[in-house]
């Protein structure tokens, strides 16, 4: 059991990482990666939703009629997202105002759906929970790295604190939409080139 947990976690963080190996689910969250703080909140929400919806789907997996299983899992995911949204509005109003519609878009994030479909439907609740957490984290850390560089190069700040002085010419393009595409591409390039070389060959 313990071995299995470790295996799942490692796979989700590295070799099967949802972002740079499967290139899944970058849609909803990429848009907030120009500010590190928003990215972190969004990531926490995402990990939470992935884990809990995985558990719920896994618990119900024997009851769900196969034809509507997509609809049911979407419904479960949507409910948890509303929960996150309400909690943010009540306890972190400032963040909620900035994230705006993007919290809602966690629903359609392909990762959550993908994990629910591929893992939770065939595994026990606890394992599904571990899988949800680890794939959520595997996804989040990539986004955080991207956000770190976008904020640093685009605004000269980290976590809102100015670190690069006046001598730094801000790369506005990094804060704008194309910046995320380029950052992610470069990141995937580096990861594939350095860390995942063997996996690439095996493919």
């Amino acid at each position: 059991m313990n071995k299995k947990i470790g295996k799942i976690t490692l796979a989700n963080l590295g070799r099967d990482n949802p972002v740079f190996v499967q290139v899944l689910g970058i849609c909803s969250t990429l848009a907030v990666t120009n500010v590190l703080k928003n990215t972190l909140v969004m990531s926490i929400g995402l990990v939470f939703v992935t884990a809990l919806s995985n558990v719920t789907v896994s618990m119900l997996r024997k009851q769900i009629p196969t034809r509507i299983r997509m609809m049911v899992s979407t419904l479960i995911i949507a409910s948890y997202v509303i929960l996150v949204d309400i909690v943010l509005k009540a306890y972190m109003p400032d963040v909620s105002r900035q994230l705006g519609p993007y919290v809602g878009l966690i629903i359609t994030n392909c990762i959550i759906m993908g994990r629910a479909e591929a893992f939770a439907m065939n595994n026990k609740p606890f394992l599904s929970f571990v899988d949800g957490i680890s794939s959520g984290i595997g996804y989040s850390y990539v986004l955080l790295i991207i956000a770190f560089f976008r904020e640093l190069m685009g605004s000269g700040t980290i976590w809102g604190v100015t670190v690069l002085g006046d001598w730094w010419v801000k790369w506005s393009i990094m804060v704008m939409a194309p910046g995320a595409f380029f950052m992610l591409a470069v990141f995937i390039w580096m990861v594939k080139g350095v860390i995942l070389k063997d996996a690439e060959v095996a493919k």
């Binding site: 119900l60 009851q63 769900i64 009629p65 509507i68 049911v72 419904l75 409910s79 929960l83 309400i86």
Partner: peptide, 22 residues
């Protein structure tokens, strides 16, 4: 019928929970 009943009941449960939180 099972499909519809299932969908309906699960929607119901979640909506009730969310309404309470709201």
């Amino acid at each position: 019928i099972k499909m519809v009943v299932f969908m309906f009941s699960i929607t119901f449960v979640f909506v009730v929970v969310l309404s309470f939180v709201h």
